[in-house]
Design a protein around this nucleic acid. Sequence first.
DNA 1: AACGCCTGCAACCGCGTCGTA
DNA 2: TTACGACGCGGTTGCAGGCGT
Length: 290
Amino acid sequence: RAPCCDKANVKKGPWSPEEDAKLKAYIAQHGTGGNWISLPQKIGLKRCGKSCRLRWLNYLRPNIKHGGFSEEEDNIICSLYISIGSRWSIIAAQLPGRTDNDIKNYWNTRLKKKLLSKEKQGRQAISLNQETMIKRESDTTSMVNQLIPYWPNQEPHDLNQASITKFSDDHHQQPNTTTNFHYPFDFSSTQEQLYENTCSQLPNTPYVINGTGSNLIDMVYSSVPQQLESYSGVVDMVNGTSSGTNSSSAESTSWGNVVYPPMLSNFDASQQGMLQNFPFEESGGYFGLH
DNA sequence: AACGCCTGCAACCGCGTCGTA
DNA sequence: TTACGACGCGGTTGCAGGCGT
Protein backbone atom coordinates (compact mmCIF):
# COMPACT_ATOMS: atom_id res chain seq x y z
CA ARG A 1 0.00 0.00 0.00
CA ALA A 2 1.34 3.39 -0.94
CA PRO A 3 1.90 5.75 1.97
CA CYS A 4 -0.72 8.46 2.29
CA CYS A 5 1.90 11.19 2.26
CA ASP A 6 5.59 11.82 1.80
CA LYS A 7 6.84 10.53 5.11
CA ALA A 8 10.20 12.22 4.68
CA ASN A 9 8.72 15.67 4.36
CA VAL A 10 6.09 15.67 7.03
CA LYS A 11 6.52 16.76 10.57
CA LYS A 12 5.64 14.31 13.29
CA GLY A 13 5.13 14.62 16.99
CA PRO A 14 3.32 17.18 19.10
CA TRP A 15 1.56 20.07 17.45
CA SER A 16 2.70 23.63 18.06
CA PRO A 17 0.23 26.41 18.90
CA GLU A 18 0.99 27.94 15.50
CA GLU A 19 0.07 24.78 13.69
CA ASP A 20 -3.09 24.50 15.73
CA ALA A 21 -4.00 28.07 14.93
CA LYS A 22 -3.46 27.58 11.21
CA LEU A 23 -5.55 24.46 11.09
CA LYS A 24 -8.31 25.89 13.21
CA ALA A 25 -8.49 29.11 11.25
CA TYR A 26 -8.60 27.35 7.92
CA ILE A 27 -11.32 24.91 8.93
CA ALA A 28 -13.34 27.66 10.56
CA GLN A 29 -13.33 29.51 7.28
CA HIS A 30 -13.45 26.75 4.68
CA GLY A 31 -14.37 23.58 6.47
CA THR A 32 -12.31 20.49 5.83
CA GLY A 33 -13.22 20.65 2.18
CA GLY A 34 -13.79 16.95 2.20
CA ASN A 35 -10.16 16.25 1.52
CA TRP A 36 -7.81 15.94 4.43
CA ILE A 37 -4.92 14.77 2.32
CA SER A 38 -4.64 18.00 0.38
CA LEU A 39 -5.50 20.24 3.31
CA PRO A 40 -2.00 20.55 4.82
CA GLN A 41 -0.60 21.81 1.52
CA LYS A 42 -3.33 24.41 1.22
CA ILE A 43 -2.47 25.95 4.57
CA GLY A 44 1.25 25.40 4.46
CA LEU A 45 1.48 22.78 7.13
CA LYS A 46 4.14 20.11 6.89
CA ARG A 47 1.81 17.54 8.31
CA CYS A 48 0.19 14.39 7.06
CA GLY A 49 -3.48 14.84 6.23
CA LYS A 50 -4.39 12.08 8.59
CA SER A 51 -2.51 13.84 11.33
CA CYS A 52 -4.48 17.03 10.64
CA ARG A 53 -7.73 15.14 10.76
CA LEU A 54 -6.82 13.52 14.04
CA ARG A 55 -5.71 16.78 15.55
CA TRP A 56 -8.97 18.44 14.56
CA LEU A 57 -11.22 15.64 15.68
CA ASN A 58 -9.50 14.91 18.95
CA TYR A 59 -8.44 18.32 20.06
CA LEU A 60 -9.31 21.37 18.03
CA ARG A 61 -12.93 21.01 17.08
CA PRO A 62 -15.44 22.89 19.23
CA ASN A 63 -17.14 21.48 22.32
CA ILE A 64 -14.49 18.93 23.08
CA LYS A 65 -14.33 17.84 26.70
CA HIS A 66 -11.07 16.54 28.08
CA GLY A 67 -10.62 14.56 31.25
CA GLY A 68 -12.89 14.74 34.24
CA PHE A 69 -15.07 11.81 33.35
CA SER A 70 -18.12 11.69 35.54
CA GLU A 71 -19.51 8.63 37.25
CA GLU A 72 -22.35 8.75 34.76
CA GLU A 73 -19.97 8.64 31.88
CA ASP A 74 -18.06 5.81 33.50
CA ASN A 75 -21.24 3.82 33.69
CA ILE A 76 -22.18 4.51 30.11
CA ILE A 77 -18.76 3.52 28.88
CA CYS A 78 -18.78 0.34 30.92
CA SER A 79 -22.26 -0.56 29.82
CA LEU A 80 -21.50 -0.01 26.18
CA TYR A 81 -18.16 -1.74 26.38
CA ILE A 82 -19.85 -4.76 27.85
CA SER A 83 -22.44 -4.56 25.11
CA ILE A 84 -20.36 -3.91 22.03
CA GLY A 85 -16.73 -4.21 23.03
CA SER A 86 -14.01 -1.80 21.97
CA ARG A 87 -16.03 0.09 19.41
CA TRP A 88 -14.80 3.41 20.69
CA SER A 89 -16.33 5.53 17.97
CA ILE A 90 -19.76 4.14 18.77
CA ILE A 91 -19.26 4.62 22.47
CA ALA A 92 -18.05 8.15 21.86
CA ALA A 93 -21.19 8.85 19.88
CA GLN A 94 -23.17 8.37 23.07
CA LEU A 95 -21.06 10.86 24.98
CA PRO A 96 -21.30 14.32 23.44
CA GLY A 97 -18.01 16.16 23.56
CA ARG A 98 -15.96 13.04 24.10
CA THR A 99 -13.68 11.61 21.47
CA ASP A 100 -13.09 7.99 20.76
CA ASN A 101 -9.41 8.48 21.49
CA ASP A 102 -10.16 10.00 24.86
CA ILE A 103 -12.51 7.23 25.80
CA LYS A 104 -10.09 4.61 24.62
CA ASN A 105 -7.29 6.12 26.68
CA TYR A 106 -9.53 6.53 29.66
CA TRP A 107 -10.63 2.94 29.45
CA ASN A 108 -7.14 1.57 29.04
CA THR A 109 -5.59 3.63 31.78
CA ARG A 110 -8.26 3.86 34.42
CA LEU A 111 -11.65 2.30 33.87
CA LYS A 112 -10.30 -1.15 33.13
CA LYS A 113 -8.33 -1.12 36.33
CA LYS A 114 -11.32 0.12 38.20
CA LEU A 115 -13.40 -2.77 36.96
CA LEU A 116 -10.64 -5.25 37.53
CA SER A 117 -10.40 -4.23 41.14
CA LYS A 118 -14.11 -4.78 41.45
CA GLU A 119 -13.62 -8.15 39.84
CA LYS A 120 -11.10 -9.01 42.51
CA GLN A 121 -13.53 -8.11 45.25
CA GLY A 122 -16.18 -10.07 43.47
CA ARG A 123 -13.95 -13.10 43.22
CA GLN A 124 -13.66 -13.23 46.96
CA ALA A 125 -17.39 -13.20 47.33
CA ILE A 126 -17.77 -15.80 44.63
CA SER A 127 -15.63 -18.32 46.44
CA LEU A 128 -18.21 -18.30 49.17
CA ASN A 129 -20.91 -19.15 46.72
CA GLN A 130 -18.95 -21.37 44.39
CA GLU A 131 -21.04 -24.46 44.72
CA THR A 132 -24.22 -22.64 43.84
CA MET A 133 -22.56 -20.84 40.97
CA ILE A 134 -21.18 -23.95 39.31
CA LYS A 135 -24.62 -25.48 39.24
CA ARG A 136 -26.07 -22.34 37.66
CA GLU A 137 -23.32 -22.10 35.07
CA SER A 138 -23.92 -25.65 34.10
CA ASP A 139 -27.59 -24.91 33.63
CA THR A 140 -26.84 -21.81 31.66
CA THR A 141 -24.36 -23.48 29.35
CA SER A 142 -26.92 -25.67 27.72
CA MET A 143 -29.38 -22.83 27.64
CA VAL A 144 -27.10 -20.26 26.03
CA ASN A 145 -25.91 -22.69 23.41
CA GLN A 146 -29.42 -22.74 22.05
CA LEU A 147 -29.00 -19.14 20.94
CA ILE A 148 -26.93 -19.99 17.85
CA PRO A 149 -26.82 -18.35 15.38
CA TYR A 150 -25.82 -14.92 16.49
CA TRP A 151 -28.07 -12.92 14.16
CA PRO A 152 -31.33 -14.75 14.29
CA ASN A 153 -33.40 -12.37 12.19
CA GLN A 154 -30.91 -10.46 10.15
CA GLU A 155 -28.15 -11.66 7.92
CA PRO A 156 -24.96 -9.68 8.34
CA HIS A 157 -24.84 -8.71 4.69
CA ASP A 158 -28.25 -7.10 4.97
CA LEU A 159 -26.95 -4.47 7.26
CA ASN A 160 -26.84 -0.98 5.95
CA GLN A 161 -23.26 0.11 5.58
CA ALA A 162 -24.28 3.61 4.57
CA SER A 163 -25.81 4.18 7.96
CA ILE A 164 -22.54 3.19 9.55
CA THR A 165 -20.61 5.86 7.77
CA LYS A 166 -23.30 8.40 8.46
CA PHE A 167 -23.41 7.50 12.10
CA SER A 168 -19.70 7.74 12.64
CA ASP A 169 -19.44 10.93 10.63
CA ASP A 170 -22.19 12.56 12.60
CA HIS A 171 -20.67 12.00 15.94
CA HIS A 172 -17.65 13.96 14.98
CA GLN A 173 -19.66 16.88 13.72
CA GLN A 174 -22.03 17.43 16.61
CA PRO A 175 -23.89 15.55 19.23
CA ASN A 176 -26.25 13.21 17.52
CA THR A 177 -29.60 13.77 19.07
CA THR A 178 -31.15 10.71 17.54
CA THR A 179 -28.61 8.35 18.99
CA ASN A 180 -27.74 10.14 22.14
CA PHE A 181 -28.71 8.11 25.14
CA HIS A 182 -29.03 9.56 28.53
CA TYR A 183 -28.00 7.94 31.71
CA PRO A 184 -29.44 6.19 33.50
CA PHE A 185 -30.39 4.19 30.47
CA ASP A 186 -34.02 3.67 29.84
CA PHE A 187 -33.62 0.51 27.87
CA SER A 188 -37.31 0.04 27.62
CA SER A 189 -37.44 2.98 25.26
CA THR A 190 -33.98 2.96 23.75
CA GLN A 191 -33.29 -0.70 23.49
CA GLU A 192 -34.74 -0.99 20.04
CA GLN A 193 -32.85 2.05 18.88
CA LEU A 194 -29.60 0.84 20.34
CA TYR A 195 -30.19 -2.50 18.75
CA GLU A 196 -30.63 -0.91 15.39
CA ASN A 197 -27.61 1.28 15.83
CA THR A 198 -25.50 -1.55 17.02
CA CYS A 199 -26.60 -3.77 14.18
CA SER A 200 -25.60 -1.11 11.73
CA GLN A 201 -22.30 -0.77 13.45
CA LEU A 202 -21.52 -4.43 13.29
CA PRO A 203 -22.03 -5.33 9.67
CA ASN A 204 -20.03 -8.49 9.53
CA THR A 205 -19.41 -9.30 13.09
CA PRO A 206 -19.05 -13.05 13.14
CA TYR A 207 -19.96 -13.47 16.74
CA VAL A 208 -21.52 -16.77 17.43
CA ILE A 209 -22.59 -17.87 20.79
CA ASN A 210 -20.88 -21.17 21.17
CA GLY A 211 -19.08 -20.83 24.42
CA THR A 212 -20.01 -21.88 27.84
CA GLY A 213 -21.97 -18.78 28.51
CA SER A 214 -20.04 -18.27 31.67
CA ASN A 215 -18.52 -14.92 30.71
CA LEU A 216 -21.50 -12.82 31.51
CA ILE A 217 -22.19 -14.84 34.56
CA ASP A 218 -18.69 -14.45 35.90
CA MET A 219 -18.77 -10.79 35.16
CA VAL A 220 -22.03 -10.24 36.89
CA TYR A 221 -21.06 -12.40 39.82
CA SER A 222 -17.73 -10.77 40.22
CA SER A 223 -18.90 -7.23 39.74
CA VAL A 224 -21.83 -7.40 42.03
CA PRO A 225 -21.48 -10.21 44.50
CA GLN A 226 -24.14 -8.72 46.68
CA GLN A 227 -26.63 -9.39 43.95
CA LEU A 228 -25.95 -13.05 43.54
CA GLU A 229 -29.45 -14.06 44.35
CA SER A 230 -31.00 -11.63 41.92
CA TYR A 231 -28.93 -13.07 39.15
CA SER A 232 -30.84 -16.28 39.11
CA GLY A 233 -33.64 -14.24 37.67
CA VAL A 234 -31.43 -13.02 34.89
CA VAL A 235 -30.57 -16.53 33.90
CA ASP A 236 -34.23 -17.17 33.55
CA MET A 237 -34.60 -14.03 31.51
CA VAL A 238 -32.03 -15.23 29.04
CA ASN A 239 -33.93 -18.42 28.81
CA GLY A 240 -37.04 -16.48 27.98
CA THR A 241 -38.79 -17.45 31.14
CA SER A 242 -38.52 -14.35 33.17
CA SER A 243 -39.22 -15.70 36.58
CA GLY A 244 -36.67 -13.67 38.43
CA THR A 245 -37.54 -11.29 41.14
CA ASN A 246 -35.15 -8.62 40.02
CA SER A 247 -36.34 -7.18 36.72
CA SER A 248 -38.79 -7.69 34.00
CA SER A 249 -37.58 -8.13 30.47
CA ALA A 250 -38.37 -4.55 29.64
CA GLU A 251 -36.44 -3.02 32.44
CA SER A 252 -32.83 -2.10 32.56
CA THR A 253 -30.85 -4.18 34.93
CA SER A 254 -28.56 -2.23 37.17
CA TRP A 255 -26.14 -3.68 39.62
CA GLY A 256 -23.85 -1.44 41.54
CA ASN A 257 -22.13 0.98 39.24
CA VAL A 258 -22.52 -0.96 36.05
CA VAL A 259 -25.75 -1.03 34.17
CA TYR A 260 -26.48 -4.17 32.27
CA PRO A 261 -29.08 -4.21 29.59
CA PRO A 262 -31.97 -6.59 29.83
CA MET A 263 -31.34 -9.88 28.11
CA LEU A 264 -34.24 -11.05 26.10
CA SER A 265 -34.17 -9.59 22.62
CA ASN A 266 -32.07 -10.55 19.67
CA PHE A 267 -29.90 -7.65 20.53
CA ASP A 268 -29.35 -9.00 23.96
CA ALA A 269 -28.45 -12.37 22.66
CA SER A 270 -25.96 -10.68 20.41
CA GLN A 271 -24.50 -8.87 23.34
CA GLN A 272 -23.71 -12.09 25.01
CA GLY A 273 -22.02 -13.31 21.90
CA MET A 274 -19.80 -10.32 22.02
CA LEU A 275 -19.05 -10.89 25.62
CA GLN A 276 -16.88 -13.75 24.60
CA ASN A 277 -14.42 -11.16 23.46
CA PHE A 278 -14.58 -9.17 26.62
CA PRO A 279 -10.90 -8.73 27.29
CA PHE A 280 -10.66 -8.96 31.00
CA GLU A 281 -8.24 -11.80 30.74
CA GLU A 282 -5.34 -10.04 32.37
CA SER A 283 -5.59 -12.08 35.48
CA GLY A 284 -5.50 -15.19 33.38
CA GLY A 285 -8.75 -16.80 32.46
CA TYR A 286 -11.02 -14.55 34.33
CA PHE A 287 -13.99 -15.79 32.40
CA GLY A 288 -13.13 -19.38 32.45
CA LEU A 289 -14.46 -21.94 34.81
CA HIS A 290 -11.93 -22.13 37.56
C1' DA B 1 19.26 16.29 44.06
C1' DA B 2 19.40 12.52 40.94
C1' DC B 3 17.78 8.57 39.11
C1' DG B 4 14.55 5.17 37.49
C1' DC B 5 9.97 3.56 37.13
C1' DC B 6 5.13 4.35 36.28
C1' DT B 7 1.18 6.55 34.33
C1' DG B 8 -1.60 9.17 31.21
C1' DC B 9 -2.25 11.09 27.00
C1' DA B 10 -1.34 12.71 22.30
C1' DA B 11 -0.11 11.06 18.14
C1' DC B 12 1.13 7.50 14.82
C1' DC B 13 0.46 3.26 12.14
C1' DG B 14 -1.74 -0.22 9.58
C1' DC B 15 -5.70 -2.07 7.81
C1' DG B 16 -10.58 -2.39 6.39
C1' DT B 17 -14.03 0.02 3.94
C1' DC B 18 -16.03 3.24 0.81
C1' DG B 19 -16.46 6.09 -3.29
C1' DT B 20 -15.32 6.91 -7.81
C1' DA B 21 -13.15 6.94 -12.23
C1' DT C 1 -15.28 -5.05 -12.68
C1' DT C 2 -11.31 -3.29 -10.94
C1' DA C 3 -7.90 -0.30 -9.20
C1' DC C 4 -6.81 3.40 -6.48
C1' DG C 5 -7.17 7.33 -3.37
C1' DA C 6 -9.21 8.83 0.82
C1' DC C 7 -11.37 8.14 5.16
C1' DG C 8 -12.25 6.11 9.64
C1' DC C 9 -11.16 3.09 13.18
C1' DG C 10 -8.72 0.48 16.74
C1' DG C 11 -4.32 -0.88 18.45
C1' DT C 12 0.06 0.67 19.67
C1' DT C 13 3.89 3.71 20.64
C1' DG C 14 6.53 7.41 22.56
C1' DC C 15 7.08 11.14 25.44
C1' DA C 16 6.47 14.17 29.39
C1' DG C 17 5.40 14.68 34.00
C1' DG C 18 4.61 12.59 38.52
C1' DC C 19 6.24 9.82 42.10
C1' DG C 20 9.05 6.92 44.97
C1' DT C 21 13.61 5.64 46.46
